[in-house]
């Protein structure tokens, strides 16, 4: 592939993952030597629909999103899910446990400034259900995390340009914590998803003294029953376990099973 044309897109998300890429700093110089960026709303005005690789951030929410994503899939040779929203459905996926009516009521209450704006005819409010990209179209690779790690973005890009499988680890965060000689979160009385969560973030949260929330999803074969036992042993209630397990990972609970 000679200097591939690359486009960035976003759906329901905070666009923070694209911001990580915009923040690559000096590495940006190297990156633009390797690829032609033809669409990136966050950093440029130009836009082209002629691209080889699409990085897509955000969860797919409404029928209009589905159509747009399908077009991106048609245009792109390689489609990469960027970040937890695209990979798992994001924290917004938690809203799937209520009806869209209930969600609307919870957010907007009875307040109506202009009745047309939130009428059922407005396509922005049409059946909002959050889904990950791969539940709608075929996804070639995933860069997990909330937000993504910009170093990992570079690694994935290099791998794709070399024709290699991107090196996303399939072992838990514990491995990276041990390599960094972090004190185990359980040892200091915190509840950590690290033993189930996919590594690759260099154990960023535990290294800063915060428990892992599994924003990168689970490893492919998580031993989640064992993890629940552990959390119980440390005095966490079933409710608290569920909350902990669904912050970023409601996708697995929704499907009634663990794993990708």
């Amino acid at each position: 592939m000679d200097k591939p044309r690359v486009a960035f897109f976003d759906f329901s998300s905070c666009e923070g993952c694209q911001l990580q890429i915009a923040n690559l700093e000096e590495a940006v110089v190297e990156v633009v030597k390797l690829i032609d960026i033809v669409a990136f709303r966050e950093v440029m005005k130009e836009h082209s629909d002629d691209y080889d690789i699409a990085f897509v951030e955000g969860s797919i929410t409404r029928p209009m999103d589905v159509e747009r994503l399908k077009k991106i899939r048609e245009n792109a040779e390689i489609l990469i899910a960027l970040g937890a929203c695209a990979h798992l459905g994001g924290v917004q996926r938690l809203s799937n446990q209520w009806t869209s009516e209930e969600n609307k009521q919870e957010v907007y209450g009875d307040y109506v400034s202009d009745p047309d704006d939130i009428a059922d005819t407005n396509p922005f409010f049409e059946k909002p259900r959050h889904r990950a990209l791969d539940e709608v179209v075929e996804v070639d690779y995933v860069i997990p995390g909330c937000p993504i790690d910009k170093g990992e973005f570079a690694k994935v890009l290099i791998a794709i340009l070399q024709g290699k499988k991107p090196p996303i680890p399939d072992y838990p965060v514990c491995v990276e914590c041990k390599k960094k000689e972090n004190v185990c979160m359980f040892e200091i009385g915190k509840f950590c998803m690290g033993p189930l969560a996919r590594a690759g973030c260099d154990a960023r949260c535990p290294s800063a003294g915060n428990e892992c929330e599994a924003c990168r999803g689970y490893v492919s074969h998580p031993h989640s029953n064992a993890q629940s036992d552990v959390l119980e042993k440390y005095g966490l209630t079933a409710d608290a376990i569920m909350q902990r397990k669904t912050m970023f990972t409601y996708r697995y609970e929704e499907a009634g099973k663990g794993g990708d």
Binding site: C174, H223, A226, V230
Partner: peptide, 13 residues
């Protein structure tokens, strides 16, 4: 092993 998280910590330390 039913309780094992398969996290690899024991081998890493």
């Amino acid at each position: 092993a039913a309780k094992c998280l398969s996290c690899g910590s024991c081998t890493l330390v």
